[in-house]
Write a protein that binds this DNA or RNA. Structure first.
Length: 764
DNA sequence: GGTTTTGATATTTAGACAGCATGTC
DNA sequence: CTAAATATCAAAACC
């Protein structure tokens, strides 16, 4: 048990004593998680566990059951419904795996739902290894990852994002309707206004489709996890235990005061609080993540963090970082990458969603391996893949919100960031530290974050936005055939479980009206049926509002001067595309608006909405530059965007253009061709002239452009080239050249010089 | 004379799922 | 409408 230093002082000054205002009493500290040896329970002693499971787990590095798992594991194995509310990194995945594997060994299928694609990969790797040891087949299904086999039905366990699972249900994947076990990871996400309703509807649907299926919901510790358990008819297990003890504290001046009352001086010569906290920990062999509220802060801070990390780099660290930095420079070198490389050489890095996925992954790997000593990050890192640090500094507890200025971040979010502290196997304790600038702030932070309970989570299904898409999908997938069935389904949701349903009823009626008016569904008496349009919209997984807007735009095709910009703006004006921010220097967009007026398919917005129109145009303009092969660095500057932003806009555009193409197939056949071509251009980021070359395997935008420059303007011209000529083209090596010729029906082996020893060729 | 520091003022603000059918430098 | 950190630019201090 921690010894209290300076009790007297603590009694007077500790921010953890009750505050003066009796109306807001500070709850007493939670019982200390015991750092003492804990009673582990062997896997083999779980009642009824299949004897094949424990050895498979042990072979994959899992040990005995931690206290946090001991109550839940037997329930999971016995096939019971379960809501497990535990802190991050306390081993809740293992409980889910136990449930899935137990069911699968009995021949029932399992589904593991996650909110992030990166998380899907992580869980898939885990389960694949376990499955291999048990003779079970595991697959992954997300928007951007190969489902190894389109016949997902053949797999015993499928890992999927909730949206992907929802999409599969809309396509009436029969195998999904008789799942034996459904795991919902991070169920507290049900309270997210954007994506929560999908998870909620999905769980309600599974409950309806197969009431005997086992549901295991994993949650962060939230106030009303019991309520979720009641809704799901599940046992509720809540623990605070963590394998690595977590200490939360507040830095004020030069010392940290922890919630147990202990004080600790920060040893550093650096002035700035975040830097001092970093140097203090890194010098003692620790690692640090500093959470801040903006991307810019993340970069500015990382540049300064170097002062705190550089001194602690070993030669091995330096070598690894030098190698990694070199790989970074291999790609188009943008200023963000230069900046990142500079930080990395000093042992620190920044991490936010503006980085490309590869860059984010690189930073994560280097930090995990201990080569990077400190990271500054936006909340991406708190919700994403498992990336712990010995010390977590939550620097910014407020974040800008468009509606209300700077607002305190949710307690749940603070807890998730704090929960990243403590690396199992490396650290005895993890520290989560916030910074107080004034004496008063200490008390405020303590009461509002460290000792505060995370918020309740509330269903966000009651908004028309959420209902529009889910009511349509219910009807289109024939889960619901009339008003009574719709009511019955709505009554089975978490929303209905927690609130009066009259609001829901009223909004549902309005949504039905919207769907009827726009001919997404038809009604005969009380019975509903989706139109061809409605069915397709549901399957395409776009917001019905987007689809209606796209249809309206397509109807004007004859009146406008049709260019790529016409369609790019059409999709950018859709609620499924989040537009780029409008910034100070963006006045040029007004000019574009004038020039392009004849090309725009959507009626221009005026007055107060003019800025929205310009923001849509900005997004469309970025996509237009992309397909005109504008140099990336130039684009990033022009739009104030990051590489990751371009990638995400391109991804969304591809998806919406496909939807546009399909909608055109129904209503405006003559528009399909230009849209198909545009979609290909967006996919590759290239002008139309390169499209034939881009169909070749191994040829992307860069190689295609090089081939074009070398005079190969068509596949025919290319087919006549000699192997030697091709290899002289910038970016085309012997391997690619051979593959191109082979694809064009030539026999490169006859022409190619014998491959040098050790060099791999494509046709071996 | 040129450079750095200081200070007032202007500017900006987290994240990321989905179709379908195969592969960038 | 709200806030705070960072960027920017000009003036002042410094070498």
């Amino acid at each position: 048990m921690a010894k209290r230093k300076g009790d007297e002082l603590a009694a007077e000054e500790s921010p953890f004593k009750p505050l003066s205002a009796p109306s807001a009493p500070v709850p007493p500290p939670a019982p200390e998680p015991s750092a003492a040896p804990v009673a582990m329970v062997p896997l083999e002693s779980i009642p009824g566990i299949d004897p094949r499971i424990p050895p498979a787990l042990r072979a994959n590095g899992y040990g005995d059951l931690w206290p946090s798992q001991q109550e839940a594991a037997p329930l999971a194995v016995a096939g019971k419904n379960l809501v497990l509310a535990v802190p991050t990194a306390s081993g809740k995945s293992l409980v889910a795996y136990l449930a899935l594997l137990s069911k699968a060994l009995k021949g029932a299928h399992g589904l593991y739902l996650v909110p992030l694609r990166a998380l899907a990969s992580e869980k898939y790797e885990d389960l694949k290894a376990l499955g291999a040891a048990l003779g079970l087949r595991v697959a992954i299904a997300t928007g951007d990852l190969d489902a190894e086999d389109p016949q997902l039905a053949r797999f015993d366990i499928v890992v999927a994002t909730s949206e992907k699972a929802d999409a599969l249900l809309r396509h009436k994947a029969q195998w999904l309707t008789n799942m034996g076990c459904i795991v919902a990871d991070e169920v507290h996400l049900m309270g997210d206004p954007g994506r929560g309703p999908t998870l909620e509807v999905l769980l309600a649907r599974f409950k309806q489709l197969n009431p005997s299926a086992q549901i295991v919901a994993l949650s962060a510790t939230i106030q009303n996890s019991r309520q979720i358990a009641e809704w799901l008819g599940a046992a509720h297990v809540k623990t605070e235990w963590r394998p690595v003890q977590l200490r939360e504290g507040i830095l004020y001046g030069e010392a940290i005061t922890f919630t147990d009352g202990e004080r600790q001086k920060v040893e550093s010569g650096l002035e700035d609080a975040s830097l001092a906290l970093t140097e203090d920990s890194v010098r003692k062999g620790g690692s640090v993540i500093v959470f801040v509220s903006t991307r810019k802060s993340t970069e500015a801070l990382a540049e300064k963090l170097v002062a705190a990390t550089r001194g602690s780099l070993t030669d091995a660290n330096k070598a690894a970082l030098a190698e990694a930095t070199a790989s970074l420079k291999g790609s188009d070198e943008t200023s963000v990458e230069k900046r990142l490389a500079k930080c990395m050489m000093g042992g620190a890095a920044f991490h936010h969603a503006g980085l490309r996925n590869a860059e984010r992954g690189l930073v994560e790997r280097l930090f995990k391996a201990g080569h990077l000593k400190a990271l500054s990050a936006t909340p991406t890192l708190a919700a994403g893949v498992n990336l712990p640090a010995r010390r977590v500094v939550v620097r910014d507890l407020f974040r800008y919100d468009v509606n209300s200025g700077n607002v305190a971040i949710p307690v749940l979010e603070y807890k998730q960031m704090a929960g990243r502290a403590g690396r199992p196997r490396y650290d005895k304790v993890g520290e989560a530290i916030t910074i107080a600038k004034t004496h008063d702030q200490r008390g405020e932070i303590s009461a509002s974050f460290l000792f505060a309970d995370p918020e309740r989570i509330e269903s966000k299904l009651g908004t028309e936005n959420a209902l529009r898409t889910h009511v349509l999908s219910s009807i289109a997938s024939e889960f619901v055939g009339d008003e009574a069935e719709l009511d019955a389904f709505m009554k089975a949701t978490f929303y209905a479980h927690t609130s009066d349903t009259w609001v829901l009823k009223e909004r549902t009626t309005r949504v039905i009206d919207f769907l009827l008016e726009n001919e997404l569904i038809t009604a005969q008496g009380d019975a509903f049926q989706a139109t061809r349009f409605g069915k397709r919209v549901s399957e395409l997984y776009v917001d019905p509002k987007s689809a209606v807007q796209i249809r309206a735009g397509l109807a004007r095709v004859g009146e406008a001067r049709l260019t790529p910009m016409s369609f790019l703006h059409l999709i950018a004006s859709t609620p499924d595309m989040i537009p780029l921010y409008l910034r100070k220097g963006d006045e040029w967009l007004a000019g574009v608006a004038m020039e392009r007026e004849a090309e725009i398919l959507v009626p221009q917005k005026h007055g107060a909405d003019y800025e929205f129109f310009l923001a849509e145009l900005k997004t469309a303009s970025l996509l237009h530059d992309w397909i005109e092969e504008a140099p990336e660095e130039e684009m990033l500057k022009k739009y104030g965007a990051y590489p990751g932003d371009v990638a995400s806009k391109v991804e969304t555009a591809r998806w919406l253009l496909y939807a546009t193409e399909e909608i055109a197939r129904i209503f405006q056949k003559e528009a399909t061709k230009p849209v198909t071509q545009l979609a290909a251009r967006v996919q590759h980021g290239a002008r139309a002239e390169l499209l034939p070359l881009l169909e070749l395997r191994g040829v992307g935008r860069w190689r295609a452009r090089q081939l074009w420059r070398a005079g190969y303007h068509s596949r025919d011209l290319l087919a006549q080239a000699s192997f030697a000529d091709l290899t002289r083209v910038q970016g085309i090596g012997p391997g690619v050249a051979a593959s191109i010729l082979k694809e064009l029906g030539r026999d490169p082996e006859a022409e190619a010089p014998a491959p040098r020893s050790g060099q791999q060729t494509l046709w071996e």
